[in-house]
């Protein structure tokens, strides 16, 4: 994969949000939930922000104790997996926006590099099972609450 390659969110299929350093991503077509933590979250933020693969590697190396070649290989593998899951598209060319990537939910790149673990796309395959097995029963009538405090 070329260092200049860019990706973008597959907006027709996927939606994502970063919360407390974890990216939660949903594939709206199959309803599946995904999670990207730590370095995977850093990669996600920069990938959907339209940054190049080179930018992704720089952002990871700035935060985690890992050599650039390792970070690059892992980032390539992760990006390919995200494309295979229809969460990202390969964009190429210039980024759609010149706005800087929002890193507010990421750990600061302040020189204190944390221990590195291979970035992983976690698929919550059990979410559908959990939802299907025991869905919460509707409580349609507010008067059901009249017993409150008894």
């Amino acid at each position: 994969m070329d260092d200049a390659v860019r990706h973008r969110l597959n907006a027709g299929t996927a939606a994502g949000k970063v919360m407390e350093g974890e990216a939660i991503v949903i594939n709206a077509v199959n309803g599946r939930y995904y999670s990207l933590d730590e370095a995977a979250c850093v990669a996600w933020v920069h990938l959907v922000g339209g940054n190049t693969l080179s930018d992704v590697v720089t952002a990871i190396v700035a935060r985690y104790n890992v050599d650039a070649p390792v970070a690059r290989a892992d980032a390539v593998a992760l990006a390919q997996q995200l494309v295979e899951e229809d969460l990202l598209l390969v964009a190429g060319g210039e980024p759609a926006t010149q706005e800087p990537v929002d890193e507010s939910e990421l750990p600061p790149a302040d020189g204190r590099r944390a221990a590195y673990a291979t970035p992983e796309l976690v698929t919550f395959k059990d979410m559908e099972d959990l939802l299907a097995f025991d869905p919460p029963l509707p409580v349609t009538e507010p008067h059901d609450w009249e017993w409150r405090g008894q």
Partner: peptide, 15 residues
Amino acid sequence: PWPTIDFSSTTGIFG
């Protein structure tokens, strides 16, 4: 019991 859940999974919500 949660018969549809893979209890051996180390990832996912349950894991």
